[in-house]
């Protein structure tokens, strides 16, 4: 059965997006991508630190991967817009994950600045995937501004605490006519499966894989969990019943009809 995830100009088979931060060694990344079968990976842009220049991330990524540079470090819309344009000029393609954070305590995203950045970048031809705090009104405004998908957080970034915002994400899945991708917070494959099973279009996982004892094996587990979740979603879960036989029937009076 054909079941593709369509975002912007791309049709994807994998519903697992992978972040490339926090890996002990970049050489692990190609193996992680291979074992997880992920097709979309995020990268970040940084000013070169002249003391300790890092290796070029791009050399570890094959040509057929969809790159999704993030705008991490941006504190407002105009910084995010500038970072997105630099990334595109640098050959990262036209996808961008907008991430605007001016809360250094919890690292929660700024939905208002994010909406402003989407408006500009979508008009400029970008495929815009905003990272956001799950809020229906904000998500609607992001969709209107031209977002290609909505990426609500499951829990604060990097916490591995799972789908803490489940109820809010469920509302976005029901109400927003765009792919909902759970970004941040997912700590275990079972949580990734849960998100996909409830109708999320994809999940973005970074910390949980990068900080596992065996990142390559964990990436494979995530890939399989996401597949299982998707199959369960498509299969339609069976009925669970809350009342076996009601003690006080509500429709008994109809027998008089």
């Amino acid at each position: 059965m054909e079941d593709k995830l369509k975002i912007g100009d791309k049709e994807l088979d994998s519903r697992l997006f992978i972040g490339t931060g926090k890996f002990a060694d970049y050489s692990l990344i190609p193996k992680v991508i291979e074992s997880s079968k992920a097709q979309v990976v995020t990268v970040a842009l940084r000013r070169v630190d002249f003391g300790t220049p890092e290796e070029n991330m791009l050399t570890f990524l094959s040509q057929n991967i969809v790159l999704m540079p993030n705008t991490s470090g941006a504190r407002n819309a105009s910084e995010a817009i500038r970072i997105a344009r630099i990334a595109r000029a640098a050959g990262c393609g036209n996808w961008v994950k907008i991430e605007i954070i001016n809360d250094q305590k919890y690292l929660l995203p700024n939905n208002f600045e994010t909406i402003k950045a989407i408006e500009v970048l979508a008009k400029d031809g970008f495929i815009v995937l905003p990272y956001m705090s799950p809020d229906l009104t904000a998500a609607k405004m992001m969709a209107e501004a031209g977002a290609a998908a909505i990426m609500p957080l499951g829990a604060p970034i990097g916490t591995n605490r799972g789908l803490k915002t489940r109820e809010l994400i469920q509302i976005l899945i029901s109400e927003i006519n765009l792919p909902i991708i759970v970004d941040a917070g997912i700590g275990r494959p079972s949580e990734a499966a849960e998100a996909i099973e409830m109708g999320a279009a994809a999940v973005l996982v970074n910390t949980a894989i990068a900080t596992a004892d065996d990142p390559v094996l964990m990436a494979e587990a995530f890939g399989q969990a996401v597949d299982a979740g998707r199959k369960a979603y498509l299969a339609g879960p069976g009925a669970t019943h809350q009342f076996a036989e009601a003690s006080s029937p509500l429709t008994g009076f109809l027998r008089n009809e």
Binding site: F243, A246, L254
Partner: peptide, 11 residues
Amino acid sequence: LLENMAQAAHK
């Protein structure tokens, strides 16, 4: 399944 529907609606 009217009784089941009614119970769910009530809740």
